[in-house]
Design a binder for these strands. Structure first.
Length: 243
DNA sequence: AATGGCCCCAACCGCCGTTTC
DNA sequence: AGAAACGGCGGTTGGGGCCAT
């Protein structure tokens, strides 16, 4: 099964046989020189593809399964700090890959961003953005009621929004408030902005405790935990962020 | 039962910085 | 020093599975 030069490379989903072969050769040769490894192993894959398969799926240090509430919490914090620096965020979450975090974020938060953007491009009287927001709003509430506790953070945020709407606070508190999505900054942006300013001050204090931890990832998770202990409990934080 | 829409995630692409020769 | 190879990263795509109609 040797891969000759110029031979077309396989693409698409990996077969079990390919996985086994890749694991065997990574164990033998280590996680480097992926192009060479791809050739030596006889896998008809690019080095890049091999690396990706190992890093995102086969590596035994990876955690599979749904994100815990704690992990979601950390993702939210770090995304607010760093933006789409997925690999940077992934380094703070042992066992999770940048790809996984990226996918998670897009799946759970993209709709919020889209809802905001749609509204921004229409006149305040326009129906398009409003209808979309309304539709989004309703489906999210339904989803909140139906989904399990698997995605703890999502539930928390949505429940908070739902509660504020049900209590009639939408005119001055809901993230779906009309004024919230105008040309001016969204409440999300403002909140994130404020929060970043706040945490940048707090971070200097956090760095002090960082020095006492053993590994980098451990240190940073400690920082995240520390920060949340210093603020209110998480539910309150979520509500304040989105309202 | 068929179908269309949506969600989720693995895999790919293209770019760029770093390392090696 | 510079070119080529390599590796890392963020964005995007494609397809399978699930669910509502």
């Amino acid at each position: 099964m040797e891969c000759k030069k110029g031979e077309t490379l396989r693409r698409g989903p990996w077969l079990e046989e390919e996985d086994e072969r890749l694991v065997k050769f990574v164990t033998l040769l280590g996680e480097r020189r992926w192009d060479s490894l791809a050739i030596v192993s006889g896998l008809k894959r690019s080095g890049k593809s091999c690396r990706l398969r190992w890093m995102n799926y086969l590596n035994p240090n990876l955690k599979h399964g749904p994100m815990s509430q704690e992990e979601v919490r950390i993702i939210l914090q770090l995304h607010a700090l760093w933006g789409n620096k997925w690999s940077k965020i992934a380094r703070r979450l042992p066992g999770r890959t940048d790809n996984e975090i990226k996918n998670y974020w897009r799946t759970h938060f993209r709709k919020k961003e889209e809802a905001q953007n749609y509204d921004k491009i229409t006149d305040w009287r326009g129906n398009i953005g409003e209808d979309l927001l309304h539709k989004y709003n309703e489906t999210e509430i339904t989803r909140t009621r139906m989904t399990s506790q698997e995605h703890g953070f999502d539930e928390t945020v949505k429940e908070c929004n739902q509660r504020s709407m049900e209590s009639g606070q939408e005119t001055n508190g809901s993230i779906f408030e009309r004024e919230s999505f105008g040309i001016m900054n969204s409440p999300y942006e403002n909140r994130i902005s404020d929060w970043i300013s706040e945490i940048s001050t707090d971070q200097s204090e956090a760095n002090v405790s960082e020095g006492n931890s053993s590994s980098t990832s451990e240190k940073n998770i400690n920082i995240a935990s520390w920060w949340f202990q210093e603020t209110r409990d998480f539910e309150e934080f979520s509500c304040s962020l989105w309202s």
